[in-house]
């Protein structure tokens, strides 16, 4: 299988980390602990996992408008994901990342992928993201538990 996905770099940047993948939308407000990076939505499948420094792969955000502010604060505190990959475009995560870049001159890269490519990404994969939006999936020897 071809291990490269051509994503759309909404907020460009580089990342190299293990993927944390969910098929369920997540509100960062009430769902992402900005002090630690823990997923705290107790009804969400990722509840209890830590997304800081991981490449968070999710369909989109949901719920609160404050998701953007939580992502901004997480960037400031260094608890944001290494990158965010969404199934299509999510304005809330995008806006948080854009404001972070303007305020702190560093941010979390945000890449949109097609639904077909989104389905190829699974938990525990090691992913490399480049500024042009290219996502490379490392060979399977490092893959963790899929769900």
């Amino acid at each position: 299988m071809d291990g490269v996905i051509a994503g759309r770099p909404l907020v460009a940047g580089n990342a190299d980390a293990i993927a944390l993948v969910t098929r369920e939308p997540l509100s960062f407000w009430g769902g992402y602990d900005q002090a630690t990076g823990e997923i705290i939505d107790r009804r969400h499948p990722l509840s209890g996992q830590n997304a800081a420094g991981r490449i968070l792969v999710l369909p989109l955000s949901r719920g609160s408008s404050t998701t953007a502010a939580v992502l901004l604060e997480a960037v400031r505190q260094g608890t944001a994901p290494a990158a965010i990959v969404t199934d299509g475009l999510d304005p809330f995560l995008l806006l948080g990342a854009i404001v972070a870049e303007k305020m702190y001159a560093h941010t979390v890269p945000v890449v949109a992928v097609s639904h077909k490519d989104f389905e190829r990404l699974s938990d525990g994969m090691r992913l490399t993201i480049r500024e042009d939006g290219r996502i490379t999936i490392a060979p399977a020897n490092e893959s963790g538990d899929n769900h």
Binding site: W29, T66, A69, V70, L72, E73, V75, R76, Q77, M103
Partner: peptide
């Protein structure tokens, strides 16, 4: 304006 919600140093600074 929902930005009024204090979410930490970042929203205050903004």
């Amino acid at each position: 304006i929902d930005s009024t919600i204090y979410q930490g140093e970042a929203t205050l600074e903004f």
